[in-house]
């Protein structure tokens, strides 16, 4: 059995025929169906899909918070539940739902990520405290350490969330809608940061988003998800036809400034593709 600490040769994440339906959906239509995908070690994979397309569900399956009804998932060669316990995945949530007025400093927030495996009543060992410092430095937030976390901008908060994920010492960084609520300049800085982290730490980075720009800015490969996996291609291979199929929209309307023109929804080959049950698109 590999652990997070030992080298491992297989794919970082391996999905084999994964299907999942939420209980109570009456089995009418699963949230995800027949997902088969290898995330290679050290690659930057973007998972692009519309809201309600099953992105959040895939994330929760990958974290072992849900169990697929059929198919299997291995994260670093382990069942997702165990990979989560071992801290293989550093999770960066979509916009923090935390109370903004919560009286914690940035350093306290990042330190939350470093406590795995330490008995809760013990103080963080020095090595872990050092990891907190390094994580803050990696995202360029060393000077924010004593800052109240509630007073950060969206972009600063996003960096702190990445630092918290890094403080867990992960192999894989899993980012959920990382650019939501960040202005265009901040998104560019964010893309640069992810590039640097990838280069310096050699992490496998999986970004899940409905925003083509978030994906195109920093991914080597893109998988399109709308209940089923549509294609996995290099970003430049994202043809208008593929996007129209995934989003079931006139893509030009969504990504107008990218000058992509696509078929209207009527041209979509499978009319069942599209918005899933409402809960499927709920918060991560």
């Amino acid at each position: 059995m590999p652990s997070a600490a030992t080298p491992f040769a297989g794919p970082a994440i391996e999905y084999r025929g994964v299907s999942f339906a939420y209980p109570g959906s009456g089995g009418s239509r699963p949230a995800l169906e027949g997902i088969t995908l290898d995330v290679r070690q050290g690659e930057r994979l973007g998972i692009l899909g519309p809201n309600g397309g099953g992105k959040t569900t895939l994330l929760r399956l990958t974290l072992g918070l849900l169990t697929p009804q059929s198919g299997s998932i291995r994260v670093w060669g382990m069942p997702p539940e165990r990979a989560r316990r071992e801290g293989v995945i550093g999770y960066v949530p979509q916009r923090l739902e935390a109370e903004m007025a919560f009286p914690v400093s940035v350093r306290q927030v990042v330190a939350m990520g470093a406590g795995r495996g330490v008995a809760p009543w013990r103080a963080l060992p020095r090595e872990r405290a050092g990891r907190v410092d390094r994580s803050l430095a990696l995202v360029g937030a060393s000077d924010l350490g004593d800052h109240p976390a509630g007073k950060l901008s969206g972009g600063q908060m996003q960096r702190v969330m990445i630092a918290r994920a890094l403080a867990a010492g992960p192999r894989i960084l899993l980012m959920d809608e990382p650019t939501v609520g960040i202005d265009p300049a901040g998104q560019q800085r964010f893309a640069g940061l992810v590039r640097d982290l990838h280069r310096e730490l050699g992490l496998t980075i999986v970004t899940v988003s409905h925003d083509l720009r978030a994906i195109a800015a920093g991914c080597d490969r893109v998988a399109c998800l709308s209940r089923t996996l549509h294609s996995h291609v290099a970003p430049e291979g994202l043809t208008p036809a593929v996007l129209a199929e995934v989003f079931r929209h006139d893509v030009a309307a969504i990504f107008g400034d990218l000058h992509v023109h696509a078929h209207p929804a009527a041209a979509c080959p499978d009319p069942s593709h599209g918005e899933g049950p409402a809960r499927q698109g709920g918060p991560a």
Partner: peptide
């Protein structure tokens, strides 16, 4: 409260992510 202070703080601050961090 003292014994569970670290996990309790994480949970109180960001319940949605707490489980993802074990």
């Amino acid at each position: 409260l003292w014994v569970a202070r670290r996990p309790l703080l994480f949970w109180a601050y960001d319940e949605a992510s707490a489980r993802a961090f074990g």
